[in-house]
Nucleic acid binder design. Sequence first.
DNA 1: GTGGTCTAGACCACT
DNA 2: GTGGTCTAGACCACT
Lengths: 135, 135, 135, 135
Amino acid sequence: MLLTVNMRDKRPIYKQIVSGIKEQVLSGELKPDEQIPSVRQLATDMNINPNTIAKAYAELERLDILYSAMGRGYFVNPDLSKAKNTEEEEINNELILLVEKAKKCGIEKPRLTGIALRIIDNIYGICQDSGKEWS
Amino acid sequence: MLLTVNMRDKRPIYKQIVSGIKEQVLSGELKPDEQIPSVRQLATDMNINPNTIAKAYAELERLDILYSAMGRGYFVNPDLSKAKNTEEEEINNELILLVEKAKKCGIEKPRLTGIALRIIDNIYGICQDSGKEWS
Amino acid sequence: MLLTVNMRDKRPIYKQIVSGIKEQVLSGELKPDEQIPSVRQLATDMNINPNTIAKAYAELERLDILYSAMGRGYFVNPDLSKAKNTEEEEINNELILLVEKAKKCGIEKPRLTGIALRIIDNIYGICQDSGKEWS
Amino acid sequence: MLLTVNMRDKRPIYKQIVSGIKEQVLSGELKPDEQIPSVRQLATDMNINPNTIAKAYAELERLDILYSAMGRGYFVNPDLSKAKNTEEEEINNELILLVEKAKKCGIEKPRLTGIALRIIDNIYGICQDSGKEWS
DNA sequence: GTGGTCTAGACCACT
DNA sequence: GTGGTCTAGACCACT
């Protein structure tokens, strides 16, 4: 499992770890019931205080991304429905706040719409939705 | 000038004040060269320590939203071009991070596009750009 | 006598006035023994508190730029030798501090020399020293 | 890290600290990613209130001289390009103001050029660029 | 341990 | 009156 923390990222380290693992789980990179590194192991690998890793794992369990088996470690939750709902709701809320801010700051609707669609195209690629291109 | 801090908002008080005044300035609610309440005045009105208000005002000056004159007070910067650019860039960057997160978490492109357009419509109104609706 | 204060200038108003009058006197724009506007007159003209003007005039007297005649007003000192020495010494000291800072910050000697000569040329004009050009 | 405040210096304490650390970083005395003393440590060492140190450090982070990581401390930014540009621009602007003042005050071009070159020689040494002198 | 925020209150220069 | 600086001390989240 590859995971890095960015020194320049202003988010606390434990939240960067939460995000990193959450994305690997929700994107399917980590498989259902797959075991992830132990707190100690990851702490050693990333050169980070074990307390910080433990805090991240606890948060991931709370988010229904991982489950723990006492004394055996942490595993990927095979039922991600709850986590996916939570995640989408969170993205929704953040988007609402962002659009409200844009409106309050005087950015016009067509301008914001243009920016949003352009960013989505850039990140997903123009034809990601069809699944195959120019077949 | 109306301004409130939200106790349930996790952002620090001084940042809430920065956002509040920034939005009032960028939306044109506060006019160019208009004087805003003095540090002490706003501190009294909002029941907040003057140091906290001063910190917010200093940040707003750094952002080219306000300018100050020793012994006279704080005023709305009549040239908001820099501040508007900064603001739009910031919104852009936040949007990029949000879309990247959505993609990594497995949200499909058409789904995200739909969510984004719906939120924009809800907040701006369907026909904000035309000014009148199907009259 | 034309004199303006710049709202955006971070120097206090009274110092801006001191600088403005000092420059007009040392450049010869204001003649020896010429009377300058009264405190009240200038305060009215510039829409500034009389105390601020009075503070500037007092400072200019201290600098041997002006002299005052009780009850008759302020006049340009006909003997500017002291003031000119003070001024040159001050410019000297500021230049020393600036060069020391540049060195400490890692700017190389030839680079700084180039910058300085270019600025002097730009402000004085290439041939100001000869007095006539390509005669 | 050696750092002192000068009581005869009219600049506020926090700005003296900013200058001191900025110079040590830009001159290479402090190395990339090197940790600097904690806010509390430096406050104790210099017998200054921690709030004042924190204000200086925050300013140094804004200037891209330092970066901070919550719970871990402040470090020297390894990418100083921005900070160096800002610094050189600032020196440039101060120099322009100084030369304009000199001109307005009646100092002739050759005189000012002489003063400037002499000061640069004195501070950098006659042959700083070659490294050895007339050997 | 680390930095970040906030309050309370003082003193200063400037208007 | 205005903002700017500083001290003292508290509490918080993060490591």
